[in-house]
Amino acid sequence: MSEIVLKIDDKEVKVAAGTTVLQAAQQAGIYIPTLCHHEKLEAFGGCRLCIVEVESRGWTSYVVSCLYPVAKDIIVRTRSEKVDKIRKVLVEELMAHAPDAPELVKLAEVYGADRNRFERKESFCVVCGLCVRYCDEVKHLNAVGFIDNGAEREISFIPEVAKDVCWECQECFALCPTSYAQAAYLLTEALAFPGQRKAAVRAAKVPVATQRIIPIKPVAATT
């Protein structure tokens, strides 16, 4: 495969054709913020935080780096006044849902986002879709999916599937930037199949001290 040379933040970077700008930056040790990106998953382009400025043949455009393929001689700027403003407002919008989510708090500091700028929204979910996509693409379980559209879109565990597979897996809990996936699971359990897990635990005679909520298995860290 042919190699492509491009410029990211004044640094010359050489990568294989077909690489995305985000991957190219990561290979060169240049940081671009992401929320919905995970190396094991297909690029989604949902959170838009990885937006960068690209100059190509004299034209400047704003593209999301997780999806934008590298091209010869393009100049990428991972930060600019406009890029920073976009990230700031996006973080402010997401903080309307989850004002204390650690990743958002960190980004708010970098970009000067005000967590109280916009009207609070009742859901803690930032709809990054990591749980939904991980469950589909990596686990092939589809125990959690998106429901509804637009502002009403949220994640939802499918009780018929979740009751058999989620407690054993729990891998999406650690991926979730706001801990909402875990909360949504437990709510589903409480509503749709209460007591089932406890009965199983009792039957297996597991000591109370080890009946924990946090994942038993370690999960591959997000990038």
Binding site: E93, E119, G150, A151
Partner: peptide, 21 residues
């Protein structure tokens, strides 16, 4: 438009309802 957004990307899903509000 708020009712017609698919909800996939944050600026559309979050930005439009905030403007509407």
């Amino acid at each position: 438009l708020v009712n017609e957004s698919c909800g996939k990307c944050a600026p559309c899903r979050e930005g439009m309802p905030q403007m509407l509000h």
